[in-house]
């Protein structure tokens, strides 16, 4: 069958547009571009509670993403959660006494690990352990504590003023 040039061109354009869309979805929309496998080193942190943290959540320092959570496992002996993180190899000057905390992005956002502080001259390297950790803030607990506290205060103040409504 003789080739039809217009048809070939149109099909070519169609396929190119489709593949470009796939690339767009892969690179621009999803987190594929942040995969830089091989150029990372692994550090471990133990949290008494890692809350809603999930694998692939961001690890950031000073608000900049520097790596991602690799895995989260439970240690049945110590009742702690073991969080393994992959840190981008270019950030190789993080002091080994940083504090790892689980924070929430915004009120309802995703949870992430933040690395803050530290002043040691030794740097984190592959297999390092982060000793100081802050657990996730559990909203119910926080609210519970807040209510309990304010109830206490109310109780104290109402004791003084003793003005029950009924």
């Amino acid at each position: 069958m003789p080739h039809n040039k217009t048809q070939d061109t149109l099909v070519g354009l169609f396929v190119a547009a489709g593949i470009a869309s796939l690339f767009f979805l892969a690179l621009q929309v999803s987190n594929l571009s942040s995969f830089t496998k091989g150029n990372t080193y692994e550090v471990v942190a133990r949290f008494s509670n890692s809350g809603g943290l999930k694998a692939k959540a961001a690890v950031s320092a000073a608000g900049v993403k520097i790596g991602s959570v690799k895995s989260i496992t439970f240690d049945p002996k110590t009742f702690e959660s073991i969080v393994k993180m992959d840190i981008d190899a270019q950030y190789n000057t993080l002091p080994d006494d940083v504090t790892a905390s689980v924070y929430t992005a915004g009120l309802l956002g995703e949870q992430y690990v933040s690395l803050d502080g530290g002043g040691s001259d030794d740097y984190l390297k592959n297999g390092s352990k982060i000793e100081i950790t802050n657990s996730s803030l559990i909203l119910e607990k926080a609210i519970g504590q807040f209510l309990f506290k304010s109830a206490e205060e109310n109780k104290g103040s109402s004791d003084k003023k003793t003005s029950p409504k009924k």
Binding site: L22, L25, A26, Q28, V29, S30, N31, L32, S33, S34, F35, K56, A58, K65, E110
Partner: peptide, 19 residues
Amino acid sequence: YWSQMNAAIDFQKDIINGV
């Protein structure tokens, strides 16, 4: 718009499954 999307959409779970 883009960065939040970037962080939340997973290549394997979302894009590949969609395909």
